[in-house]
Simulated assay, not measured.
Amino acid sequence: MQDNGWDIRLENLRLGYDDTVVLEDISVTLPAGKISVILGGSGDGKSTLLRHILGLKRPMGGKIFLGPHDLFKLSSKEFRKVRRRMGVLFQDGALLGSLTLGENIALPLTEHTRLDKATIQKIVHHKLELVGLAQFAEYYPNQLSGGMRKRAGLARAIVTDPPILLCDEPTSGLDPINSAQMDRLLLDMKKHFPEMSIIVVSHDLASLYTIADYALVLHDGKAVYSGGIEQLKGTDDPYLRQFLDRSAGDMKTPDLKLGEEARAALQAWLNK
């Protein structure tokens, strides 16, 4: 199976659950060898899109191509092979607490390959070195900080050198220093794996401006922007400007006052 340069191509995609349409008419290509950031407000379909790219749910309509593979037209065997070639960094790292860090990183290799133990250990050590955690291989997840667990999750996601790396909110819950370190690591992944398609779902505008080559912005069930980051920075689209400038727009705070009877009842209860 060819690994080089897996673009993610979405054609006339229509996504949703039961009879509810979440996204429709999505036709974009997330390029190989680049970091693409998927943006949008809460409920705008970012996680829904990620689940479908992962093959966890079949689209209502349209096609998803991972490199040359039309994902939902593959045989069951080929589908499983393609799925194994995608690395996923979950929001919380999703490490198993009963396994050491090294065992967690090795899990995709022990489950899906017949590599000998020595080879697996070499690969695990290499990936832990890439994320700066080689000395923590024997630690358990509860002995690590949140930022370290995210970095460990990244090491596990890349342990098979996948052509596609999907990252769900990689900087959420991190302080500014750890967020910057995660951004640096993603840029390092781009350098170490120059043909890898790296897809990042994020609300973090500082991260967007640091790592993104390409952006896809979702809003009201549509792709309202897809293209280079420099063009996005210069947009005059009202919604995009509001999003990028973190503006509340014309939102007004209602002037609502608690009635005197209700206020008196509340105060009487508090003074008991």
Rank of each mutant, 00 (worst) to 15 (best):
C167L: 06
P163M: 13
K57D: 15
F72S: 03
A215E: 11
L56T: 08
L205S: 12
Q121M: 11
K252A: 12
Q267K: 03
I8Y: 03
D7F: 02
E169L: 13
L10M: 08
G147Q: 01
L74G: 05
L50A: 11
P141Y: 01
A268T: 14
L133N: 00
F90K: 04
G45L: 08
G40S: 08
L71R: 00
L101P: 00
G221C: 13
G227N: 11
D19M: 05
K252D: 05
L99I: 07
L218R: 06
G249W: 06
V22S: 04
K34Q: 14
K252E: 15
L56K: 04
L266E: 09
A152S: 06
I26R: 01
M196I: 03
T235R: 06
A94R: 09
K190Y: 03
F65H: 14
Q242T: 15
Q231S: 13
H203Q: 14
I38D: 02
D161G: 04
I199M: 07
L244T: 10
E129H: 05
K233R: 15
W269L: 12
E169G: 12
G132F: 01
Y17Q: 07
D236C: 05
F193D: 09
A157G: 03
E78C: 06
H126M: 06
G16D: 10
L144F: 00
H125L: 13
